[in-house]
């Protein structure tokens, strides 16, 4: 554990909590892509199956359980409890495509051809692109509530901080997992436009509206 990873994890945790608070307080999931949330739930489910087989630390186990539980809670809020507020007609990204491509890539490019390893690899590839339905939805509506943009900023920063963590681990521990690193770079790259808008608009107290 190093400082970059710790802040990264805290940023990830903050993102999830911000999203839950937004939905719970406003009793509404408007502006949130249910498809991205479904993908994140699939990501956590496939990746954290090792909860049953591989103990790392109390911290690791606790975080995994929290991420799993919170993602299922989010899905429940969007598709059941507050489903009347879900903007289904704006959430039109073909997310099946992301799943198919991630499955194929995971079968072709992995560290080891075993069930758990392929599921882990699939979760890494899918996580890299899971935000696309959400970004697509914002592009379509042309705006996002500020709390939604705080959520996205925390979620995007998390993988960016992981990149610093991987650089650190490479030099200090000789640890390099290029599947995670390359996917993490893609994942962070997808947020670039958003980061720019967030810093130039939201941080100055304006709303996140896309230039026409």
């Amino acid at each position: 554990m190093n400082v970059f990873r710790l802040i990264g994890d805290m940023s990830h945790l903050a993102a999830i909590i911000i999203l839950l608070i937004k939905i719970w307080r406003s009793r509404s999931c408007s502006g949130i892509s249910g498809k991205s949330q479904l993908l994140f739930t699939a990501v956590f489910t496939c990746r954290y199956l090792d909860l049953f087989t591989n103990f790392v630390s109390i911290y690791n186990t606790t975080m995994k359980i929290f991420f799993l539980a919170s993602s299922y809670a989010t899905i429940y809020l969007i598709f059941m409890k507050f489903k009347a507020t879900y903007n289904r007609n704006h959430d039109t990204f073909r997310f099946e495509l992301l799943i198919v491509v991630s499955v194929i890539l995971a079968l072709l490019i992995n560290h080891e051809f075993s069930a758990t390893e392929i599921l882990w690899t699939f979760s890494i590839y899918l996580e890299a692109v899971a935000i696309l339905p959400q970004l697509f939805m914002i592009t379509k509506t042309g705006e996002a509530e500020s709390i939604t943009s705080h959520y996205l900023f925390a979620l995007g920063s998390y993988r960016g901080l992981y990149i610093l963590n991987w650089i650190y681990r490479y030099y200090v521990e000789g640890h390099l997992d290029w599947i995670a690193v390359l996917s993490g770079i893609v994942q962070t790259g997808l947020y670039c436009d958003f980061f720019y808008l967030y810093i130039t608009r939201v941080m100055k107290g304006k709303n996140l509206t896309l230039p026409a």
Partner: peptide, 10 residues
């Protein structure tokens, strides 16, 4: 050097 003994990250 490549190392992938276990996935200890989240």
């Amino acid at each position: 050097k490549y190392c992938n003994k276990k996935h200890d990250e989240l």
